[in-house]
Design a protein around this nucleic acid. Sequence first.
DNA 1: TGACAGGGGGTGT
DNA 2: ACACCCCCTGTC
Length: 312
Amino acid sequence: MPALSWSGWQPLPLDPPLRDPAIIAELLDGGQSFRWWRLTAPAETWLGIWNSRIVQLEFSTDETRWRTLSNPAKTAERDLQRYFGSGAGEANPIDSLPWRSDPHLARCLSEFPGLRILRQPFGETLLAFLCSATKQIVQIKQMLALLAERHGAALITPVEREALFSPSTGLSFPALHRLPTWAELAQVPEAELRACLLGFRARYIHQTAQFLAAHPGWLEETEQLPYPEAKVRLCSLPGVGEKVADCVLLFGAGRLEAFPVDVWILKAMTAHYGLDDWKPAQVAHFGRVHFGALAGLAQQYLFAYERRHRRR
DNA sequence: TGACAGGGGGTGT
DNA sequence: ACACCCCCTGTC
């Protein structure tokens, strides 16, 4: 078994490019994914983990570069392109949004160039958003980091870690473990889940894990179903309502028509679209009709704008 | 510096 | 409507 080492840096073609640190942070640490960390030394980079893959990104002025620590690095480029959505050469999905007739959407789009929807592993996304109820991003990250450290497989040995990350990256560094699989979670007593700061979410995750263990292939089948049917199935899981189901389908299955409605979107639609006192389900329906097949992409821009300009 | 409220990107009853 | 949990943040 050869020692783990970084691959060489390679370019990641992104259209439009990502340069603004605030937009990069919005994409990687803004509520889609909870498994990216900003490193500040020796240079500013981002470290991300999904499945068994550890990736580092560097956003310089002229291009985005990546390298990977995972073994093998063979499929890394393909994985990256899938994770960051459509590769170079495809039509910009922004053009399919109704910004020409929607001034507020146009403003949001112009303020966050490069923002996109990530395509994360389905099972991991379900776990993340089962953790998300009434929690802020930092807390969700903390829960998932503990779950990974205590119940997920290590991706790197302490010796390798020392060699590859010393002298220091100067931050609270995550354990380089993958998230536990649902099969692994099914083996964890609920009390141990609670010990990962999950609170009342521990029961949901425990019960979901038991259900998935009893229904092999259920999750994989769900990922393949058309949006409406997939959503109905997800909503049958304990702890999964409409909002969580839409987040899982949007961020973990590439279903860009999913339009998650949380308190931020509720505020945004009230403030900019006059939807006073509308209920979440009504707002969700409006969103899918008004924004169309890529409603979830529009949602992400509205969300980013609202976070930046309203500050709680 | 250390305690202390208040509230948090929801779901289920 | 309210309970479910309990950590984070801002404030004094």
